[in-house]
């Protein structure tokens, strides 16, 4: 099975709008999923600049799926769905 890739946006907007808590994913994901899921930080994903969408920040991308107003729980839920 292909690896699931999680990209946490480290752009200024995502960080300011609450992305700091998402850094926990760096510890949680390897612990929970081993090498089935890869988590990485990413430069600005460019999602906030489209049509005032900064209000939906922080963003995380799980493969091609965009998680808006991302929280640790929300991201884990999406990963679980992918792996199921």
């Amino acid at each position: 099975m292909a690896k699931v890739t999680v990209k946490v946006c480290l752009g200024t907007t995502c960080f300011v709008m609450g992305g700091n808590n998402l850094q926990e994913l760096n510890d949680i994901i390897p612990e929970k999923y081993g090498d089935k899921v890869e988590v990485m930080g990413s430069n600005c994903l460019g999602l906030c600049s489209i049509n005032w969408e900064y209000s939906k920040a922080p963003y995380v991308k799980v493969d091609e799926e965009v998680v808006t107003e991302a929280t640790v729980e929300k991201v884990l839920e999406v990963i679980d769905k992918k792996l199921a």
Partner: peptide, 17 residues
């Protein structure tokens, strides 16, 4: 800090770049 952060967001400043 929140206000400075808001200023960066409004001006679309990407610090890490």
């Amino acid at each position: 800090y929140e206000e400075l952060g808001a200023l960066f967001v409004a001006k679309k400043i990407q610090i890490t770049e």
